[in-house]
Design a protein around this nucleic acid. Sequence first.
DNA 1: TGAATTACCTACCATGTCAATAGGGAAAAT
DNA 2: ATTTTCCCTATTGACATGGTAGGTAATTCA
Lengths: 137, 137
Amino acid sequence: MIVSTKGRYALRVMVGLALRGSEDYIPLKEIAEAEDISLKYLESIMSSLSKGGLVDAVHGKGGGYRLRKKPEEYTIGSILKVTEGGLAAVSCTSQGAAACSRTECCQAKPMWERLDRMIDDFFEGITLADLLQEGKK
Amino acid sequence: MIVSTKGRYALRVMVGLALRGSEDYIPLKEIAEAEDISLKYLESIMSSLSKGGLVDAVHGKGGGYRLRKKPEEYTIGSILKVTEGGLAAVSCTSQGAAACSRTECCQAKPMWERLDRMIDDFFEGITLADLLQEGKK
DNA sequence: TGAATTACCTACCATGTCAATAGGGAAAAT
DNA sequence: ATTTTCCCTATTGACATGGTAGGTAATTCA
């Protein structure tokens, strides 16, 4: 499993925000109800998105969350990397992984690296705007 | 993380068996020492490979494990599917997953399906024999 | 026949991650 | 000052992962 609930929720929220336009700030409560996701759980997700600079957040009445860019300017990869903390298919290749003792002689490493590259290209090649249209394909 | 230690160990063992030719049966003890993997843990992995029909197993003295086919006849996918029990990138698309309530309206589903197909093609397009050569590329 | 060798099976444990919950804060508006 | 909203730090329960332990069944060899 390469993409957890957290990342999938994040995509749904971003799609939701995109559909509502980027004019108004949408309070988390409203998003949670619309998407039927636990408010408290969503908080941690929005926190990642906000810290990652993907959305604008404003406190107080009239505040909430809003896309910072246009949907076509977000790649799916950029969203998932923020919420999942990386997309490596194998622990060997994920940064911060204790370099396995066999790194030098591991027969499979080039394969894992090609896989990672392929997955990265895949997600970087799809934008939020594409996802909005996805149903119609 | 799409491929766990179990699957990676399995690949190493299969590579190891391939290198030793398919004449003799190699006892698990020997494999574990050569690969420096816990014997007991390897047991469960070999059990999967054996049940999956990927290797022949013979009891008693002179027994052990042996490849059933030629290295070029094993795809990496066939090995990983047996040990990992599937390669779905997202729980939504893995068989046996409680079809999420949004299946019908999920904007992202086509994307997950394309990703799964891509990963499957990737692993089905590489054979054990390819892996043996991998270092030289 | 019996002992050694080997695969096989069931259960267990320790750790970590995931999904979700809880309970407060702190910023901004009215 | 009060409400609204985002933000931060735990905590929990469930599950998967990686690994351990002990015993059983099949096969060979003496």
